[in-house]
Design a protein around this nucleic acid. Structure first.
Lengths: 233, 233
DNA sequence: ATTTTATTTTTACAAGATTTTTACAACTTC
DNA sequence: GAAGTTGTAAAAATCTTGTAAAAATAAAAT
């Protein structure tokens, strides 16, 4: 199998060489640029599987590069490298079309985890054609519509929050499998979540009120004591 | 469950003993070193789940220790303890391969939160990959699915608890072998389990209700009087 | 910027489930 | 049949989860 090609744009020489070394030692093929203009040049000259983009760069900011890359390639995964305090909403939100971001300073494991997560996501998309995350889907006896953030069960409509949707999606993609709290927290709250643990339970409880016929006797999302939760499809 | 083992390297005696006490009172098993060289010695002599590493230490700096540890173990989570003003980008950035850092003086809560976040990250990761041992397996006339925590026998479904699964797995990996109570207790309950003995019998009895056609005439897990139990594959 | 509103997270404790222990009958072995 | 071992129901202890309500955060509106 051909190695996955990663393109890095980062002006700080320490971070850049660190990135290149690490990624290469992980088996990726890496190419790096140290400012925004060079970045676009290189990007145009090669074909990559994934892009890591620093926001603060001389020449052309990461924001701009991201937008430009998206013009050229609508699909390539882009992960932004942000410093604490930089505006992130815009980055990942939809305006720019980045797929993920990571805040400096970051751990190598976290970065690698995000890279493989994004790559996996993309591959799954390509492989299956259907984008499971976009359209409405059936969940237990309900219809969940991620576009409208609504859930319908036997004629009744409920509003869903972002967390609700993310949770439902994650369960939906792992039917009948017992998912640990760790797994769920990582998948829905993000890999660097620091909170304590009743949070998830709380959301499960709220979800059950909407999806279960009798929330005191859950049927769709069941508890596996000491382990986690299971969505029974 | 076995306690998580944390290794602390920190020269300041107050901070060190404070850390050890706190972590131990949180249920972690802790081992500490007070300089860089001793740190490597200890690290090599034991096996840990997580490392806390001060940067400024006599002998060998935390930077060096971190790098050395990474040579030995690419995966073990490392959290650096930094003083204000110390260069952090390099620490956590990529060069060294630490997973996270925390700036002194830090609150014990923040530290604990970060420790569990990092551990969760690692655990969720392990849980994610497809481990061949995790797939469903046949046990007597049943199918056992460790992912769903369910057991099926002649069309009937039973829920399994964590202990059930662990016991079944252990038997499964030692077919036709008579396993003593000690063996089973060590394998499933952990090596330092102190309980008295009817515990295991109780679980066997419960399991038999699920896996045996006639639990009063066990066939799959049989008793070897005075010795232990045997799974007849 | 300030207030209002919605959402998310945390706290606190009740309720629940599992596990462990106890107790004792039944069984095995010699 | 005596001594020791095992089966298992039921009680007790321990650990986990459910969830209301408070607090904190984030988002929207003024």
């Amino acid at each position: 199998m051909k190695p996955t090609k990663i393109f890095v744009a980062e002006d700080d020489v320490n971070i850049r060489t660190g990135l290149v070394d690490t990624l290469e030692s992980e088996g990726y093929a890496v190419q790096a640029a140290d400012d925004g203009n060079q970045a676009m040049e290189l990007f145009n000259a090669h074909s990559f599987d994934l892009v890591l983009l620093d926001i603060m760069m001389p020449g052309k900011s990461g924001y701009d590069v991201c937008r430009d890359i998206r013009e050229i390639d609508k699909k390539i995964p882009i992960i932004m490298l942000t410093a604490k305090g930089e505006e992130i909403d815009k980055v990942v939100g939809l305006e720019l079309g980045a797929d993920d971001y990571i805040t400096k300073p970051f751990g190598i494991h976290e970065l690698l985890a995000r890279i493989s997560a994004v790559l996996r996501r993309v591959k799954a998309h390509i492989g299956e054609g259907t984008k499971p995350s976009e359209g409405p889907f059936r969940f237990g006896g309900c219809m969940v519509n991620p576009k409208t953030f609504k859930l319908t069960r036997s004629g009744n409509d409920f509003d869903l929050s972002k967390r609700d949707i993310d949770l439902l999606k994650h369960f939906y993609h792992h039917p009948n499998e017992v998912l640990s709290r760790d797994n769920l927290l990582n998948a829905v709250w993000g890999i660097d979540y620091l909170g304590t643990t009743r949070t998830l339970d709380q959301h499960i409880a709220q979800l059950r009120k909407k999806i279960e016929k009798d929330s005191s006797k859950p049927d769709v999302i069941t508890t596996v004591h000491g382990v986690g939760y299971r969505y029974n499809s």
